[in-house]
Each structure stands twice: as C-alpha cells, then as structure tokens.
Amino acid sequence: MTAKASRTPLSRERVLAAAVALVDSEGIQALTMRRLAADLGVEAMSLYYHLPAKEALLDGVVETVLAEIDAATAGSPANGDDWRARIRRQFLAARQVMLRHPWMPGLLSTRRTIPPRVFAYYDGILGVMIDAGFSYRLAHRALHAFGSMPLGFVQEIFSPGAADGGAEDGASEAELAALAQQMPHLAAMMAAEMHDSADPTLGWCDGQVEFEFTLDLLLDGLERLRA
C-alpha cells in the first residue's frame, strides 16, 4: 500500500487534500506531519518541500476548504441576477462546505495571520456589492454586520453545553432551574430554542433556519440602505 501510494507524484494540492481528509475522519488533533506522511506513503521530511511548517500546513488546509466554496459557486450566474440572490447563494454554499467540515470554524479562529485566499474570497463579495451600487463605506459596514456568515457559520453569543444542545449533554435540569431564578428571560429562551440533537449545526444555535433568517434580515435591510 505504501509503495503504491509513493508512485503518485507528491504535490502541494495532493498533500492538502490528504490533510483535509484526515481531519474530516479523525479531527484536527490527528493532523501531524508524521501522520500525514504515513497516509501519503512518504517520509515526513518530503512534506516540508511543499509546506515548510505546521502553520503553513494549517493555512493550506484553510485555503483548500475555501477553494471548495469557490468551486460550489463557480457555475452560478454572475450578471443580471439580484445582488441579494448572489450573496445569499454564496453564503449558503459556504455553509454546506462548513457542514462537511465542521472543524473549520475552530481552525479559522486559531490562525495567527489571515491566509491570502481569505482576502480574495472577501474581495469577491465586495465586488458583488460594489457592482450593485453600494458605496465602499456601506459595503464595509455590511461586512461587519455579516460577521462570519460569508464563511457559512455564525459565532454564537451563548454556548450552554454541547454543540448538539441536548440537555443531558449540556446544562443539567438543576442548573437550568437556578438560571431561571436569576435570569428568567435567558432561561426561557434557552428552554424554547434548544435544538433536537439530530439537527446538523455548527454550534448551539447555528441552525439552518436561524442562519437563513439572519442572512435575509441583513440582505433586506442593506437593500433599503443601498436604494
């Protein structure tokens, strides 16, 4: 198996594809140069020719996942389409990619510098807005309002337990009862909004319905300001 793998020429793209596959199957903690080299059937030192350090590897993984978003929207119509439809399609495509790689939001938050492809990704979003008649000032404010939504997820204010929101895995009944006495409105919201554990989310209350609700709210408000 190792001999067969080694016959395929090593490239940066092949290394990064293997890295993403490894993290998908075993988590970001499993990603080491030694383990990645073993999966590729090469010596660990040969990876450093393509990615000189672990940080470069992680940045490359980020860029590889962003490339999936670009590919998912590559065939979408660019002209004659409402700007909101284009942005909405872009963000929802990004969300589907993030759901395939739920470790990606956490990895993004650890980057010491922003990989160049992230800047290019946001430049494309700005281009859609400027072409639609936005000023750079309003487009800048829009990016602040969108937060992490262009990348397909939202950063949550509250995280009261496990990501699946299950009461048995998160806050206990006693803890919720104590919270209800001190902060009744927050406790009532938590009780009403905890999702079914089968809901495939990227965080406690980052459900598909909530993501689209927030996105449409922002897009409609920005359209009023643009007009």
Rank of each mutant, 00 (worst) to 15 (best):
residue 78 A to W: 12
residue 131 D to V: 07
residue 36 L to M: 06
residue 151 L to E: 02
residue 2 T to S: 15
residue 146 F to Y: 01
residue 34 R to W: 04
residue 150 P to G: 08
residue 90 Q to C: 00
residue 156 E to M: 04
residue 54 K to F: 12
residue 139 A to V: 03
residue 227 A to Q: 15
residue 202 L to H: 08
residue 143 L to W: 05
residue 30 A to G: 02
residue 105 P to C: 05
residue 70 D to Y: 13
residue 23 V to W: 04
residue 44 A to C: 05
residue 149 M to N: 02
residue 136 Y to H: 12
residue 161 G to M: 08
residue 133 G to A: 09
residue 198 A to G: 05
residue 38 A to R: 01
residue 112 R to S: 10
residue 118 V to A: 08
residue 133 G to T: 07
residue 211 F to Q: 00
residue 151 L to C: 05
residue 56 A to F: 11
residue 143 L to K: 00
residue 215 L to Y: 06
residue 94 A to M: 09
residue 103 W to S: 05
residue 104 M to Q: 00
residue 140 H to N: 04
residue 158 F to D: 07
residue 136 Y to F: 05
residue 156 E to S: 15
residue 149 M to C: 03
residue 6 S to V: 15
residue 71 A to I: 14
residue 15 V to S: 12
residue 216 D to S: 06
residue 113 T to H: 03
residue 140 H to Q: 07
residue 110 T to M: 13
residue 147 G to V: 15
residue 200 P to Y: 14
residue 212 E to I: 08
residue 221 G to A: 13
residue 79 N to G: 07
residue 40 L to F: 07
residue 65 V to C: 00
residue 178 A to P: 06
residue 169 D to W: 01
residue 176 L to V: 01
residue 169 D to R: 08
residue 82 D to K: 01
residue 167 A to M: 02
residue 160 P to G: 10
residue 146 F to H: 11
residue 117 R to T: 03
residue 181 Q to A: 09
residue 2 T to V: 15
residue 80 G to A: 12
residue 104 M to W: 13
residue 104 M to V: 13
residue 21 A to P: 10
residue 6 S to P: 13
residue 31 L to K: 00
residue 3 A to K: 13
residue 157 I to Q: 14
residue 84 R to P: 08
residue 71 A to H: 15
residue 101 H to C: 11
residue 13 E to T: 04
residue 31 L to H: 05
residue 88 R to P: 01
residue 206 D to R: 02
residue 154 V to C: 06
residue 15 V to M: 09
residue 8 T to Q: 14
residue 50 H to W: 11
residue 206 D to S: 08
residue 179 L to E: 03
residue 151 L to R: 00
residue 153 F to W: 15
residue 122 Y to C: 07
residue 200 P to E: 14
residue 115 P to F: 03
residue 178 A to N: 04
residue 191 A to P: 11
residue 221 G to V: 08
residue 34 R to F: 02
residue 88 R to H: 10
residue 34 R to M: 09
residue 114 I to R: 06
residue 125 I to T: 04
residue 28 I to A: 15
